[in-house]
Design a protein around this nucleic acid. Structure first.
Lengths: 145, 145
DNA sequence: TTAATAAAAGACTAAAAACTCTTTTATTTT
DNA sequence: AAAATAAAAGAGTTTTTAGTCTTTTATTAA
């Protein structure tokens, strides 16, 4: 079990891939994205439909159609993708799954967990999609082997 | 979706509860544990059977039977409970679920994630079950509201 | 204006995780 | 030895997550 759901992993990977491939105004099709990030095509289609409805990615039908990300989208923090798919429990939930865990009623892991969770939150909130795709552009990071 | 599976959350909570309740050599039954940590009784029974087989908790059948944790168990780091239930992917896996992500083939989140993951690893490896149950004994932390 | 293209939508199936119920086995107390 | 107790084991069901397949709708280019 990862930190993110499989759906969210595919969402993040596809957003990076699309950003990386469509920087100069072009579009990329679902087949190419699915192949590029190693995900099931039709499952990814569902995910991108949702991200498209939420305005996180843009899409166009027909010949020369495909997915792309506009300027505003590129400036969004990665946290918005994560929240759109997995909700915000990863940023706020108790490590032991206790509904009533809080500052005044903390579980045994509360403070230690909060510190770690906040770092994840900061990372995802303070880094934009463009920031991450830059390291892909530079060839420093990869989405496949 | 939490950092741990539901099964693992119950496992951790029950281990803390048992440690807290059996410090002075006594035992605690499944009903009381399930009630004390707010988990489904029969589901928890399965989990504790497994932890018992792995030697993380001890059990005794019959009247005055129940679960307890011996001295060696109390000194175990919490990471052993987590690994027994969820495996070690939480300590080693890629944040984006990429099988081939590594130092030499990093994903866009690799370094940032590694730092956060290592903190979680350190926390779980460096704190024993006894350490955590102490804050329960002192009434500083709680497993229920 | 028709054919081709590509995403959107809908209706599924498969697998995993979470949870329940019943029976069996071991232990202790009377 | 019998009755009571409590965990172990087995065999399920339910729910959620992941993944597939088919049809529809929108767009573009010939």
């Amino acid at each position: 079990m990862g930190v993110f759901s499989k759906t969210c992993e595919y969402a993040i990977r596809s957003v990076f891939f699309i950003a990386h491939r469509t920087a100069s105004g072009n579009r990329v099709g679902i087949k190419e994205i699915a192949n590029g990030i190693d995900s099931p095509e039709h499952f990814l289609a569902k995910i991108l439909q949702d991200l498209s409805r939420r305005g996180i990615v843009q899409s166009a039908k027909g010949p020369n159609g495909g997915f792309y990300i506009d300027e505003r989208g590129l400036k969004r923090p990665l946290s918005e993708v994560v929240e759109a798919v997995d909700g915000n429990s990863i940023f706020t939930g108790c490590g032991l799954g206790l509904a009533y865990c809080s500052e005044t009623n903390p579980c045994p892991l509360h403070n230690e967990f909060k510190a770690i969770r906040n770092q994840l939150k900061d990372l995802l909130e303070q880094t934009t999609i463009a920031d991450f795709s830059e390291s892909l552009n530079l060839g420093i990071t990869k989405l496949r082997k």
